[in-house]
């Protein structure tokens, strides 16, 4: 398939008011190992779903499924009313953060531009309309002031804003973000969450965000999908993040404690039985 054709998705929403993501009794895994199973979940436009769970519980696996990089072992996955398709411009993706080399000959504008036409063949020609779209994406995340600085010399928070701009430059209907808050300071975490929230309110974009950090996402999450030991729980944060639900999910006593507006989960095993699950998965795909 030529990446030239990837730019043309179906026009408009698949069906008015239909979900952006629809998972029906989906199971996922690698080889014989099931990561989780029987997951049923719809994500509506403008909804922000936070995917929580320890390492190896299949959070990244869910994103790879929605990106069309792996197939479900059971059930049906729908993105915008069709099976997920690799490289769809209507699905934006913010990959797990990796430090960019400080000598990388690349500026913020170049990084964002890759999200627009980096998948196309040929060297590419200067284009005023592409430059304008990149400019709008940079403005939307407030990154104009450092857009022409070498990306490798920017702070983690600044790099993350640029990655967000790269994911948004193709104007996606669904935004997937893998640990967008990892290794950021509290202020930067706040800023990233504010930007994600603004995007879905302004453009009705559905956001599915994988995270270890519960508290920064709580004020914005409409729903939580909590994965643990191959099982899952989904619902509004106040329903999922309770001692009863999580104890049931883990099959062991777990306490959810609320202190000064923050949530602490006590007693949950930090890592699942296979801590290398997700790693192995994402390495496979990267090759």
């Amino acid at each position: 398939m030529s990446p030239h054709h990837l730019g043309q998705g179906p026009a408009g929403p698949p069906e008015a008011g239909g979900p952006v993501v629809r998972l029906e009794h989906v199971a996922a895994g690698y080889g014989h190992r099931a990561v989780w199973s029987d997951l049923t979940l719809d994500v509506a436009p403008r909804e922000l779903v936070a995917v929580l769970g320890a390492n190896g519980t299949g959070k990244t696996t869910l994103l790879r499924l929605l990106l069309g990089q792996i197939s479900p072992t059971a059930g049906r996955v729908g993105v915008l009313g069709a099976p997920p398709r690799r490289g769809s411009p209507r699905v934006g993706y913010v990959p797990q953060q990796r430090a960019l080399d400080s000598e990388l000959p690349l500026r913020g504008v170049d990084l964002v531009r890759l999200g627009l036409d980096g998948h196309r063949w040929g060297p590419g020609l200067p284009s005023a309309s592409a430059r304008a779209r990149v400019g709008r994406a940079l403005a939307a995340v407030g990154a104009e002031s450092y857009a022409t600085a070498p990306v490798g010399r920017l702070s983690g928070g600044e790099q993350q804003r640029l990655r967000l701009a790269q994911a948004l430059v193709s104007d996606p209907v669904l935004l997937l973000a893998d640990e967008p808050l990892a290794s950021l300071d509290l202020a930067s975490q706040q800023q990233v969450m504010t930007l994600l929230d603004a995007r879905r309110r302004d453009a009705d974009t559905a956001v599915v965000l994988v995270t270890h950090e519960v508290n920064p996402v709580l004020p914005y999450a409409d729903r939580i999908l909590y994965l643990a030991g191959g099982r899952w729980a989904a619902g509004p944060p106040t329903d999922v993040l309770t001692s009863e639900t999580l104890s049931l999910l883990y099959g062991a006593r777990v306490d959810v404690v609320r202190v000064r507006g923050r949530v602490a989960i006590v007693g949950a095993p930090e890592d699942a039985h296979h801590p290398d699950h997700e790693r192995a998965g994402s390495d496979d795909g990267g090759r």
């Binding site: 990089q69 690799r86 999200g115 036409d117 040929g122």
Partner: peptide, 26 residues
């Protein structure tokens, strides 16, 4: 090289994002 120029740069700079965008990184 001219034909592969943009996908090569994308895959070299950020393989995960490139793959999600449909670049045949492998």
């Amino acid at each position: 090289l001219a034909l592969l120029w943009r996908p090569l740069w994308f895959a070299s700079v950020d393989a995960d994002a490139a793959q999600a965008r449909g670049v045949p990184t492998r």
